[in-house]
Design a binder for these strands. Structure first.
Length: 269
DNA sequence: CACGAGACCTGTTCGC
DNA sequence: TGCGAACAGGTCTCGT
């Protein structure tokens, strides 16, 4: 489901929620493979009586600081976080339920079961391979240009490679490339410095717009944000490009749908 | 190294 | 109406 703006939105709402300062009373796991580590027995015992002290984000990971350890959740395609009263009936796809003191519970709901949860003492070991945070002040057009020079890969799959840059997925990669007027198949090392500057701008603009709109709500998953109403190209096949009116085209790149304007985003050579 | 295909999963939408 | 195919915000692993 979510990319950086969606995870950021969820993170912000959790941070302002009553889970902060609450102790975990019980943990119920309903799909074993949801847990990346440790074992279900270890997990359900070790997490008990730890208090949630803060919530953060790195790339697409939600990071819950607990009293003694750190809980990380990756929502993958269909994961959602529900904060609900303890008495509520369970929704069909609840995979992990943490009951907190005060009659509330935090549920990880994940229809497709791709999501993963970690309980570790050092979160670095889970997120250490992630690339830079795109909105971090240290991530400059110069840094992006230098990294692009090092790869001959197609720009779209490269932007979605979390070790290259953390947080972009299919929506924001398509949107950023359109803003930058770059074809999704452009070889990274053929991108000029001024194109890299445009791409840097496009990445920031797309992510910041996404965050401003509290993320996108697509299909039946996640309601709340409305960035889907502002897509320039993503899932707009056949509709007019907002810049030039040409019909948006969809191709497959790296097993994923890629949407672009064939007039604004041309491939050189 | 870079790419494609296949896995992992369930649910919705599309085309005949 | 029904049924299969295609598609979906992600990532991992394996083969070429």
């Amino acid at each position: 489901m979510p990319e950086l703006p969606e995870v950021e939105t969820i993170c912000n709402s959790l941070r302002a929620s009553p889970i902060i300062g609450r102790k975990i009373i019980t943990a119920e796991l309903h799909w074993a493979r949801t847990l990346a580590e440790p074992s279900p027995q270890e997990f359900t015992t070790r997490i008990l009586s730890q208090t949630i002290t803060e919530v953060g984000r790195r790339g697409k990971f939600l990071i819950f600081q607990l009293t003694r350890e750190v809980l990380l959740i990756h929502l993958r395609m269909s994961g959602e976080i529900f904060l609900e009263p303890d008495g509520n009936p369970w929704l069909p796809h609840h995979r992990l339920i943490l009951r907190l003191e005060g009659g509330i519970r935090l549920a990880f709901n994940d229809a497709r079961k791709f999501g993963r949860v970690w309980l570790v003492s050092d979160p670095q070991k889970v997120v250490q391979d992630l690339g830079p945070e795109p909105l971090d002040p240290n991530f400059t057009p110069q840094v992006l240009y230098q990294k692009l020079q090092l790869s001959r890969r197609q720009i779209k799959p490269l932007l979605m490679d979390q070790t290259f840059l953390a947080g972009l997925g299919n929506i924001y990669a398509d949107e950023a490339l359109h803003l930058a007027r770059l074809h999704p198949l452009t070889p990274a090392n053929q991108i000029t410095f001024s194109q890299a500057e445009r791409l840097w701008q496009g990445i920031r603009q797309a992510l910041e717009a996404g965050i401003r709109h509290q993320g996108a709500s697509i299909d039946w998953v996640y309601r709340g944000g409305d960035f889907q109403n502002y897509f320039r190209v993503y899932r707009r096949t056949g509709e007019p490009c907002p810049e030039c009116g040409t019909a948006i085209v969809r191709i497959t790149v790296g097993q994923r749908g890629a949407h672009f304007c064939p007039t604004c985003q041309t491939l050189q050579g």
